[in-house]
């Protein structure tokens, strides 16, 4: 029973991190219809930067995180204005952006490999130590992670609902022509969306980096997990992604507990196919396009 509860808790924690990771992906897709295949690598790059700042340079963790997020903003702007903006003007933009982000992912992986080597690394825990609870020990870092995730989710919700930029992003997601008619500057909103997505994704990478290990290759795994969550929840739907992330986090933990880690991927795939079969629009229904 304790093992089960432990698994459940760990599933919920990982799920909350997946939720943060998936949010950037789903909002980027919802607004711009660009599917970012470098998504996982964005997360890994941020995590490596924080590792570099904290472990190699010995800086305080918040300083490292701030620096990493600044790099994310620059990367986001460069990606959108340098490439995606032009690709979106082509008739085959879907395929073009897919391949471009794929190429970007490879370049990121190569850069990480060259700069930091192939060895496994971890971001230092934010809060070391653990507390004793009725079903076992809970690392303080895990407690921090789940709190941070929930706070981030609330902040994202507020950003999308309350701020002008957030509202414009939602307007573009609902109808691009409609948004243009009311005078929304599409380039500005797409740029903002890329920044938002890269920062969120980078944060999720840093948080995940404290919970699990990372290598330059792990970006692919994170990307695919992110997309399964997003597809499961409905591409473009934020609440859907959150629900799906928790669900899949728990599924992953329970599969690991009862069947072994090797079954994680088959389990994810089966879940995904079943989900698409039952609800092609995702569990909470995205937009119908």
């Amino acid at each position: 029973m304790d093992a089960f509860l432990n698994s459940l808790a760990s599933g919920l924690i990982v799920g909350s991190l997946y939720a943060i990771m998936a949010m950037g992906l789903t909002i980027l897709y919802g607004v711009s219809h660009v599917f970012n295949f470098a998504h996982g690598h964005v997360a890994v790059v941020a995590a490596y930067l924080v590792w570099f700042a904290a472990v190699r340079l010995g800086l305080a963790l918040p300083v490292g995180v701030a620096a990493a997020l600044l790099v994310m903003v620059v990367l986001a702007l460069a990606t959108y204005w340098g490439a995606i903006r032009g690709l979106l003007r082509r008739s085959e933009w879907g395929f073009g952006t897919l391949l471009f982000t794929l190429g970007l992912a490879i370049l990121a992986e190569y850069a990480l490999l060259e700069l930091f080597g192939p060895r496994v690394k971890s971001v230092p825990a934010v809060l070391p130590g653990s507390v004793r609870l009725w079903f076992g020990r809970l690392a303080l870092n895990d407690l921090f992670l789940i709190t941070a995730s929930v706070v981030l989710m609330v902040l994202v919700g507020a950003f999308l609902k309350r701020t002008l930029t957030g509202q414009a992003m939602r307007a573009v997601a609902q109808s691009l022509p409609g948004a243009q008619v009311v005078g929304i500057d599409i380039d500005r909103i797409y740029g903002a969306t890329f920044i938002f997505a890269f920062v969120m994704t980078g944060l999720s990478g840093v948080l995940l980096g404290t919970k699990t290990y990372m290598t330059p290759h792990i970006g692919w795994e994170w990307m695919i997990k992110g997309f399964v969550i997003v597809a499961f929840g409905g591409l473009g739907s934020v609440p859907g992604a959150i629900v799906a992330a928790f669900l899949l986090g728990v599924v992953e933990a329970l599969v690991t507990l009862y069947l072994g880690a090797i079954w994680i991927w088959p389990a994810w795939l089966v879940t995904f196919i079943v989900a698409l079969w039952l609800r092609p629009q995702g569990i909470l229904g995205g937009r119908s396009t």
Binding site: F35, L98, A231, L235, I262, P266, W268, L276
Partner: peptide
């Protein structure tokens, strides 16, 4: 579109696990 890309990729990615099993 993108669903096809992702589901086919997931399919190929699940195979190493099947091979190990």
């Amino acid at each position: 579109g993108i669903y096809i890309a992702l589901l086919t990729l997931a399919f190929a990615d699940a195979l190493p696990s099947v091979i190990t099993i």
